[in-house]
């Protein structure tokens, strides 16, 4: 315990990098996921094909391999990415491929009459997407997306492999340094601490989403019960599924 307190500044630095990497990854992943996911249901064949290629390519490669490939491959095409940037690119591409699949699934679950009725009302395809279809997938994809976020936060620890100074790396340094100085390995304690921190972060995220989901569900059903005439038979039809 003393050891951890002693080394808190170093671990804190690592944790900050992990946070930066995670936030940047989640932000970019969300943006790219929506772009690729929307392309997957586009009426343009070329966009759909591009989307499928992107998704299949990045989903079928282990994340570690992807990371090493980006980090060591970037210089070959004239880019020199530092470990942080390489990790960001790698995690985002992998995360977006999975995120796009979640979003595509969300769209597939919407009955086709939703899109048709919007178009039949003279709405433009973009309006139909943004005002009619997108709002309908947000709640259904929330659990799967939180899962992806959680995996991505955990995956940031892989950035250690290319030498990014993030949380896990700071722990490794402490373990190595202490072993050299004292001859005793504090690995169990230090990595145990690391484990707890990752657990707390991801568990809080899951709790937060669970709470958010319940809040939304509650506000919708409260609204419903306030109505004088509750629907009984309509709730079973897929067209009304929210």
């Amino acid at each position: 315990m003393d050891l951890i307190i002693e080394n808190l500044p170093l671990m804190w630095k690592g944790l900050v990098v992990t946070f930066q990497l995670a936030v940047a990854t989640l932000f970019l992943t969300t943006a790219v996921s929506f772009a690729v996911g929307i392309a997957a249901v586009s009426r343009f064949r070329s966009l759909r094909i591009l989307s499928v290629v992107f998704v299949e390519f990045f989903r079928d490669i282990p994340l570690v391999v992807n990371l090493l490939f980006v980090y060591f491959g970037a210089p070959l095409v004239g880019l020199s990415l530092d470990p942080f940037a390489a990790a960001l690119v790698s995690f985002t591409s992998w995360g977006s491929a999975n995120g796009a699949e979640i979003i595509r699934g969300g769209f597939k679950a919407i009955p086709k009459h939703q899109r048709e009725s919007a178009l039949a009302l003279g709405m433009r395809p973009a309006e139909t997407m943004v005002l009619v279809l997108l709002p309908q997938i947000l709640l259904p994809i929330l659990p799967a997306f939180t899962g992806l976020f959680s995996i991505l936060i955990q995956a940031t620890s892989l950035a250690t492999m290319v030498g990014a100074m993030e949380f896990l790396r700071s722990a490794q340094i402490i373990v190595e340094r202490t072993t050299m100085m004292t001859g005793m390995s504090p690995a169990f304690a230090v990595y145990g601490f690391v484990l707890c921190v990752y657990f707390v972060i991801c568990f809080s995220l899951n709790l937060l989403t669970g709470w958010l989901e319940r809040r939304i569900a509650q506000s919708r059903s409260a609204h419903r019960h306030a109505e004088s005439e509750p629907a009984t038979e309509t709730a079973m039809r897929p067209a009304e599924a929210t």
Partner: peptide, 17 residues
Amino acid sequence: TRLEIGMVFQNYALFPH
């Protein structure tokens, strides 16, 4: 044409959100 001619579907297709 769609602005000028309305359509009603079998499944109503109201926007649930």
